[in-house]
Computed example of a mutant assay.
Amino acid sequence: MMKVSFAEKLKKLFGSKKTESEEFFEDLTDALIEGDIGAKNAVQIVDELETKCREEKITDQEKISGLLKEIILSGVKEVSFKPEEGKVNVWMILGVNGVGKTTSVAKMAKLFKDKGNNVVMAASDTFRAAAVDQISMHGDRLGIRVVKHQMGSDPSAVVFDAADACRSSGGGIVLADTAGRLHNKENLVNELKKIDRVCSSKADEGCYKKILVIDATTGQNAVRQAEVFNEAVGVDAVILTKYDSTAKGGGVVTICRDLGIPALFVCTGEHYENISDFKSEKYVDEFLGR
């Protein structure tokens, strides 16, 4: 069954409930929770909205929607990163298996190559043959160098060699595709901490970023993933995949508000070109159906 978007629920709510009624605000809270914003944030957002509407005697749908946009937008953060020229930039790409992590690495690789950057992809998920094969295939298609080791080898050694390859060719950006086996959390966390140390030591100062890929359709699961990875190594930004789904990812509101992690890119399809900068206002407008 297709999930109904928050925008559709909001439209229905405006059409069926008096905007000054207690019931309207209660139903709005429920709709926000179902829209993956999470209970705590939904209650805070609606409390603030209700207080302002009561104080200023606002009952007009358009004004309420505009006020709701302002409140949600104040907690949503966007960020833009640019590799520094002539330096070794290392981006560790994090995320659980199945969120589109390797495809996102390939999309970023093409994006930066097209902007004139020297790009090296590091096949640091050495535990899944499919992951290494997939990134190698993308490298062949895009004409981008892929550094890989044999299956089961040390993932941090792959990043080490990729960073050396990048430095020897005058700098650029290393995109390291890492493993994401959350069911074996302790091992994963220890492994990521080791890769983190290597990335940090091999990148030039200020040129290391940790970026988490999340599936925009998974809501509170995505929030929990962000908590785990952020606790393990710290996360500088998130990338939203599968953003073309009808259920826009309200989870990013929670990630921004609770963890202070901004969003960097959105991916809307399978093609290499289907990646764009995350824009807070556009995101909130789409979430609200404005």
Rank of each mutant, 00 (worst) to 15 (best):
216 A>L: 08
245 S>E: 09
49 L>R: 06
115 K>T: 01
177 D>H: 08
189 V>W: 06
104 S>E: 02
81 F>V: 12
20 E>G: 07
42 A>M: 03
122 A>N: 06
21 S>H: 10
135 I>K: 00
79 V>Q: 10
77 K>N: 10
234 G>R: 02
114 D>Q: 04
241 T>H: 08
235 V>C: 12
41 N>W: 06
213 V>R: 09
34 E>L: 14
101 K>P: 00
110 K>G: 00
265 F>M: 14
127 F>N: 03
104 S>N: 04
158 V>L: 05
126 T>N: 03
176 A>P: 13
168 S>W: 01
164 D>W: 08
93 I>S: 02
158 V>R: 13
5 S>M: 08
287 F>R: 01
204 D>N: 15
219 G>T: 10
191 E>N: 12
159 V>A: 11
145 R>S: 13
74 S>V: 11
89 N>D: 09
133 D>K: 07
287 F>N: 01
29 T>E: 15
79 V>Y: 04
41 N>H: 12
174 V>R: 11
131 A>H: 08
134 Q>R: 07
140 D>N: 10
290 R>E: 02
238 V>Q: 07
15 G>F: 07
17 K>L: 12
108 M>I: 03
36 D>M: 02
57 K>S: 11
54 R>L: 12
214 I>W: 12
156 S>F: 07
283 Y>P: 00
220 Q>D: 01
41 N>M: 08
131 A>R: 02
103 T>F: 05
174 V>F: 07
108 M>R: 01
228 V>R: 03
33 I>Y: 02
43 V>N: 07
21 S>D: 11
260 G>D: 13
90 V>W: 09
283 Y>S: 00
74 S>K: 15
137 M>D: 11
157 A>Q: 13
52 K>P: 01
251 G>T: 00
243 Y>P: 00
271 H>E: 15
199 C>Q: 04
23 E>G: 00
9 K>E: 13
283 Y>T: 01
149 H>F: 06
80 S>E: 13
133 D>V: 04
93 I>K: 00
209 K>N: 03
231 E>S: 15
133 D>N: 11
258 D>F: 04
135 I>E: 02
208 Y>F: 15
44 Q>V: 10
267 C>E: 01
132 V>D: 07
147 V>L: 13
23 E>Q: 09
198 V>N: 13
264 L>K: 04
208 Y>V: 02
285 D>Q: 03
146 V>S: 02
272 Y>V: 08
254 T>R: 05
95 G>H: 09
217 T>S: 13
264 L>V: 01
35 G>S: 06
237 A>C: 08
171 G>F: 09
